Simulated assay, not measured.
Amino acid sequence: MTDPYSLLGVSRSADEKAIKSAYRKLAKELHPDRNQDNPKAAEKFAEVTRAYDLLSDKDKRAQFDRGEIDADGNPTHPFGFGNGGGQGYSTYSRGGGPGAEFEFGAGGADFGDIFEGLFGGGGRRSGGPFGGFGGRSAPPQRGANMSYRLSVPFVDAATLAPQRITLADGKTIDLKLPAGVESGTQMKLSGKGQPGPAGAGDAIVTIEVAPHPFFEKEGDNVRLDLPISLNEAVNGARVKVPTVDGPVMLAVPAGARSGQTLRLKGKGFTHKQGGRGDQLVTLLIDLPAHDPALKAFAEDWSDSRPLRAHLGV
């Protein structure tokens, strides 16, 4: 992947606000819904989303800036060389769509078989650090757990759409997302880790909810800024609004104000206890620039209310 800073068009010293602003601008331009006849736009949208996913995560950004991981989030020394002898995890990009990756846990290798071969059988080993002689053999160990990260599209997370992930052995599994899913949610797949004498370890899948170009998550609610025209605000109107479940019609009341928030019940994320949050729609009156008719109207009309009296001016 191209350098994430270059993809978003920001400097390496850009703060979180600048990075988010750059992503939102690009995402709106490149979103597949606006470019249905341009597959390259969809590819570019996926690239800038992965770039934002990396740079919006403080830990990942710091690792990238230090050269510990590349632009795809993979370690520059996947087997630990040059990094203190392989402490921590080694991450490998693998299947499951963009953002799906897995890690092998440090210390997961079972050295019992190695030392057993050196000392000629388990019956002669003691309890010393490498077995020794005359003691009992160590009990068989389960295989190491394997950790995966799965990037889930915002709308899929809100609607609990099934997700497919490809494991290290090449097998694919369809995951049913749990109620209350959010970034950091972990799912355990029993027996899907590395094999071992006492059985396979587990696969631990950590969910990351991908950002969306115009929806934002707030608890179990979804927030959306909705532009409306002046006449829709003054006279009231029924307007089409996007939701995670698809477009719906929203009644804008006559005399609506910019900044006013309307609620669409049950259009948010699923609660852990069941039921769903709401979608909170904030109205933003969008005035056209240099419109002669609007300018002529404003010249013949004035608002005599003391709008700023509560501010002491």
Rank of each mutant, 00 (worst) to 15 (best):
R238P: 08
Q63N: 09
S151V: 11
A71F: 02
E182S: 15
D303V: 12
E232I: 04
S147M: 01
G196D: 00
F297N: 08
Q63A: 13
G246Y: 03
S126D: 15
D3I: 00
G193Q: 00
V205M: 03
E208T: 14
L280V: 05
F119V: 05
F130H: 15
R66Q: 15
I204D: 05
F104M: 12
K25D: 03
L54R: 00
A42G: 08
V239F: 00
P4K: 04
P197G: 12
D220I: 06
V181M: 09
K188C: 10
G184D: 06
A46K: 04
T206M: 15
G108C: 06
T49M: 06
I228N: 05
R223N: 13
L230H: 08
G107D: 07
A254I: 03
K192Y: 08
Q194Y: 11
S258D: 07
A293P: 02
H31C: 04
Q87P: 10
D37T: 14
T2D: 14
N231D: 14
G120A: 04
I204T: 00
L283G: 02
G184W: 09
N35E: 07
G170A: 13
G108A: 13
S147L: 15
Q194F: 11
V248I: 11
Q141P: 01
N231P: 11
G97Y: 11
S302T: 11
E216A: 07
V181P: 03
R257V: 03
D220R: 14
A158M: 04
G67Y: 06
G117Q: 05
D202S: 10
E101W: 02
A254L: 07
G121K: 09
L311H: 10
E299P: 03
M187Q: 09
P195Y: 06
E29A: 14
G312C: 11
P75W: 09
D59G: 11
A309G: 07
G95Y: 14
G199E: 09
A22D: 07
M1D: 06
L264M: 09
T172Q: 12
T172W: 03
G199S: 12
P242G: 04
G246F: 02
M249Y: 13
V252M: 01
